[in-house]
Simulated assay, not measured.
Amino acid sequence: MDKLGFLDSVAKIAAFISLLLALFLLTVKTENKLANRLFGCFIILSAIDFSGLFDYSFPQQYVDLEILRTTICLLEMPLIYLYVLAVCYSDFRLKGKHLLYTLPFVVMNIVLMPRVYLKSGVEKEYFLAHFSEMPEVYFFQILIECQYWFYIVSIFLILKKYRKIYLENYTNPSTSTYKWLFQMNCVFVVMHSITASKNLLRYTATRDTFLWGNVLMVVMALSVICWFVMKALNHPELFRGINSGLQLTREFLPKENINETEIIINNQDEGISSQIQALKKYMTAQEPYLDPSLTIQELANQFNVPVRDLSVLINHHMDQHFFDFVNEYRIQKAMQILKDPSKSQLTVLEILYEVGFNSKSSFNTSFKKYTNLTPTAYRNA
């Protein structure tokens, strides 16, 4: 099989599997329907993108559709950006303003209109025959690069804020969503960097080298899509979003209280110290941390204080994230159980559920953070 035939086969397999995965995402029953639909649409557009590598001759009367297909890639990163928002924030909804993200796609097709869509005959044939050398194509490539890196940076900024809000307001399963989306964005950075390098081969290398570059990119893209979806299926907890209305503690602190220097509890006024002691006593006596889905809002309701005051108390005055504050009590409880000879028959898995964790990896990470030992090693010691 020659290179073109091999590329055609790989591209068709990639497109076929992508469409199957998209069909699954668009029909599967889940609480996170919007995120699944956005990602399903992204996969469909990727499949359409793959079709450009098929070994076929497009009918002359429909050549405008082929040109339109080449610009479809300008809709892919906006979909991924919206997907990240939908995964991170449980109350995210699509609105009319989000149509602005289609602007590069619209602009590109307007640029192509004078010499492609509105032309016919010899002029149009000449443009298509020298397509890769036309100014419109250079503009297209620059637009893709600008758009891609804009969304990459935007996603990293969203994830940075998401992680801070989660740590200040939630506990389990913590940063797994952040880690997953961060990995995904890093993969996109690598993929696009390789794609951009591959595109340079169009002008600097032989046609055979360029074709093999296309084969490599299709195989890598297919692998990434399969990995992405299988990860989502095997780890549904990744899609637990937070409320977008939540603020970081520093956003509602009085200006004069925003100080990056450490606050030592002994130097605080008696009111703050007494509140901290009362909170610690409540945590020890009532053990609210045993609830695996405990949030700062729920703890504030139980402790009978405004949620903002509790957030400032923990995240600012105690200089701890709510996540670390709660998990510290869970680890201390787990340590008591592990040291208790009468409970030696309990497995580590049973213990982590008993103390409020619902993820073995999260429990092991937190336990080692506080003890420098794994739960099993601590029990044996």
Rank of each mutant, 00 (worst) to 15 (best):
F156K: 00
L19Y: 12
S362E: 11
N214A: 14
E31D: 12
L75E: 03
S120L: 03
T206P: 01
F42M: 05
L181D: 00
S90R: 11
F182V: 02
Y101L: 15
V84M: 07
P59A: 09
Q286G: 04
V229H: 07
I194G: 09
L299C: 12
N214I: 14
E145V: 14
L82S: 06
F127T: 09
K164A: 02
K95F: 00
K280S: 14
K29Y: 10
L75Y: 07
I48H: 05
G213M: 04
H316W: 15
I152P: 06
T209N: 11
F127A: 08
Q247E: 12
Q277P: 05
V189Q: 02
S361L: 03
G245N: 11
I13C: 14
T261N: 02
Y138N: 07
V326A: 13
A86L: 08
N259Q: 12
F24M: 03
L82C: 02
D8W: 14
S90M: 08
M191G: 05
L38K: 07
I13N: 03
Q247A: 11
N243V: 04
E66D: 12
M77E: 14
Y81G: 10
N327T: 03
Y62T: 10
Y353M: 05
H130S: 15
E237V: 03
L34I: 08
I44D: 02
I242Y: 01
S18N: 13
S154D: 07
I43R: 03
V153S: 06
G271Q: 11
L290D: 00
L53G: 11
V215S: 14
N185R: 01
I142K: 08
A22G: 12
L20H: 06
G96R: 08
Y378F: 15
E76P: 00
K255P: 02
T295K: 07
S344N: 09
I314G: 09
F6L: 15
Y166D: 05
L7G: 13
K97P: 09
Y166V: 09
L75P: 08
I67M: 15
E350C: 09
L290E: 04
D2K: 01
L38E: 06
A300S: 12
V10Q: 13
N243I: 01
R240A: 06
R379A: 08
Y83D: 07
L181Q: 00
K124S: 07
A22C: 09
S90G: 06
I158N: 10
L313D: 01
D319V: 01
I331K: 04
I48L: 10
M1C: 14
Y170C: 06
R202M: 03
K281T: 15
L34F: 04
C73D: 09
L103N: 02
F239Y: 10
